[in-house]
Simulated assay, not measured.
Amino acid sequence: MNTTRTNATKQRTRQQIVVLGAGYAGLLAALRLAPHAEVILVDPSDRFTERVRLHELAAGRPDVTHPLQQILRGTGVRHLAARATALDPVARQVTTDDGRILPYDRLVYALGSRTGHLPGSPLGPEGGAADERAYSAESAEALRKRLVDGPGSLAVVGGGLTGVEMAAELAEAYPDWSVRLLSAGPLAAGCSGRGRDHIHTVLAARGVRVEEGRRVADAGEVDADAVVWTASMVPNTALAAAAGLALDPEGSGRIAVDASLRSLTHPEVYAAGDAAASHAPAPGRLRMACATALPTGSHAASSILAEARGHTPKPLSFGFTIQCVSLGRHDGLIQFVRPDDSPRDRMLTGRTAARAKEQVVRSTVRFLRLAARRPSVVSLIPGL
């Protein structure tokens, strides 16, 4: 028997999978698929960013990234440091900004999301600030430099959990700054009444002035030396839309997918993380979050593997358990929720909650490192 020819045939028959995006969803999908296929991970950065720590970076944490080379070492995943500029689902190929054309049998679209851009908003379409006073989580490092140059007045726009964490963290780290938190509706609307009361109490103790019912269209409306925009998130799906992939009919701008996370119009394309309009029986449409990126990234990989083995992919099964909110380094809120993400009465606060939130954040990187070492084990972990 010609062993060389047999090995070459096996090599040619391995699926070619391209994963766009090395965030939580894309990286986990690539790691799980690597033992079974030829995987190319396309992302311009050579580092994985813990996006859930960007408010900490703005507050002075030295670094919130990890070298991709260390995570991917020995996995077989090939990282291409480039940006995808075109997607052709008919020819099944991706074009990158360095001129490469990458063919694929299956594609995982996991390009995530960014701080929203609305007409007249302070942020340009690539997340850059049109108003020099305006910053976002993506520009956390520049924000930190500005705050170090202070003191002055700072306004955080957006009363969701991202805005709450940003305001609490910055008020604690830069006590000489006068901090306001502007919210169009009730602060932390998804939390219970007791949970919102705790957030208000901690923010007040940090000197943060909360202004609910304050709708802001752009930074020019805010009288402050610096403005942090956390009011909305939008998916990075322009590439998908230009390629003709159907987007969410409900208008979220995310890629329309079935229960196994396949594109409704191009089933050889799977979407995961914030770019996908994923849904599950209990919560319905999943919100954009690290808590949903990891499970959907893992499920996209499971669906591709099932399909390759001639099986019907299983539908996504997911339910929420908690919402984690850091309120500076020494306080927090762990809000227990039902599977549909509605709040329960039970919650943790104070240092206990702060420690629990830190462990949750650390666990995301632990999961990724586990997937690099033992990818077959990940699917056995509840929720992944």
Results as ranks from 00 to 15, higher is better:
L68N: 05
P122N: 10
A280V: 10
V157I: 11
E126A: 06
L28I: 14
K10F: 11
H198K: 02
E56C: 04
A308E: 11
D149T: 09
H55Q: 07
I304D: 09
S113K: 02
V108P: 01
A129V: 00
V42E: 12
D258P: 06
P343R: 09
A25R: 00
V108A: 07
L286F: 08
A308W: 03
E126F: 02
G195W: 07
A130M: 00
G207D: 06
R329H: 03
D340P: 09
G112D: 05
S183F: 05
V228T: 09
P382Q: 06
A217R: 15
P339H: 13
P295N: 10
E165S: 09
A167R: 03
L147P: 02
T296L: 13
T352F: 08
E268I: 00
V228S: 10
V378D: 02
D131E: 08
S302N: 04
T201N: 11
H266T: 09
L264I: 14
V360W: 14
V179Y: 08
V361M: 10
L187S: 07
M233A: 13
T201G: 04
G195P: 08
R351P: 10
R133T: 09
M288I: 13
D176Q: 13
H279R: 15
T9Y: 01
L294F: 05
A219R: 02
E250R: 14
V164T: 11
A171L: 03
A8H: 01
G158A: 12
R338E: 15
R32L: 09
G74F: 04
A293W: 06
H299I: 03
G213Q: 11
R73T: 13
A231N: 03
